[in-house]
Computed example of a mutant assay.
Amino acid sequence: MKPRHKRFALIVGGLVILALVATLVLNAFQSNLVFFFSPTQVAAGEAPKGKSFRIGGMVKEGSLQRSADGVTLRFVVTDTDKEMTVAYKGILPDLFREGKGVVAQGKLGDDGVFVAGEVLAKHDENYMPPEAAKAVGDAHERAAANRAAADAAARTLKP
């Protein structure tokens, strides 16, 4: 083999190896990619079916229900616009409380209940995940716009 052919073979072999490594890295990245959705987005059908994602918001007051085994529980996550029931089997973080921010990772069940494999709670009094804070803010803006539209409609109906 001529030196020119050897060099060409090494370059082609290097490119094949580089392509294989890039494919493996992108595949690993894609399988570990988890998106965040608010309860409003899930209710609108924006969440993926059969794939893992995160849902966040506030734990609704009075919604925490523990089963007899003490490890299986259900609670409601809300962004003040829509609500979603979350089922979780495991030990909750120490900072998990009703009325506080939470992010849960899992899949949406066929019955519309979010089955969480992991629950994350906020870490201090002032923290809320940025995605959850944005979802709550968006829900407040939509509610204010709806109230303003209803008030305007009521004013036009009065004689």
Rank of each mutant, 00 (worst) to 15 (best):
A144M: 10
K158M: 14
M58V: 02
V86L: 01
R54M: 15
A22G: 14
Q65T: 07
D69W: 09
V34A: 05
A148H: 04
L73E: 08
G137H: 05
P93G: 11
G90E: 08
A19M: 12
V102M: 01
G45Q: 09
G13D: 03
G56Y: 07
R66F: 13
A28D: 15
A152N: 14
A116I: 03
V76C: 07
S38W: 00
R142L: 11
M1K: 14
L24Y: 05
K82L: 00
V76T: 15
G90D: 02
Q65P: 02
A154C: 06
N32H: 14
A133L: 05
F37A: 04
V16Q: 09
R4A: 15
N27W: 04
R4P: 01
L92R: 10
V115E: 12
S31H: 11
A152I: 01
M84F: 01
G50Y: 09
T85P: 00
V86C: 02
V21R: 09
G13T: 06
Y127H: 14
A149N: 13
G57Y: 02
N32L: 12
L64F: 04
F36S: 07
N32S: 15
T80V: 08
V77H: 05
Y127E: 10
E61I: 12
L92M: 08
L15G: 15
D110E: 15
D79W: 01
V16D: 06
D69I: 07
G62V: 00
N32P: 00
D81W: 12
P48R: 03
V115I: 15
D124H: 05
P129V: 02
H123S: 11
A121E: 05
T80R: 01
A116H: 06
D151V: 11
A149G: 08
S67N: 10
D94M: 08
A44L: 11
G45E: 08
P48T: 12
E118Y: 11
D79F: 01
G106K: 03
K122M: 06
S38A: 13
D81P: 02
G106C: 05
V25H: 03
A154G: 05
T80G: 00
A28H: 14
A148R: 13
G57E: 01
V76D: 03
R4K: 13
V59F: 01
L20V: 14
K51W: 12
F96M: 05
R97I: 03
E141Q: 10
V76L: 00
R7C: 05
P93A: 11
A28T: 11
P129K: 06
A43H: 06
D79C: 07
G45I: 06
T80N: 01
A44G: 01
A145W: 08
A135D: 07
G14T: 15
N146Y: 09
E46K: 13
L20I: 12
K107C: 07
L157S: 11
P3K: 09
V25C: 11
N126W: 11
G90M: 03
K134M: 10
K100S: 01
T78W: 04
V21D: 07
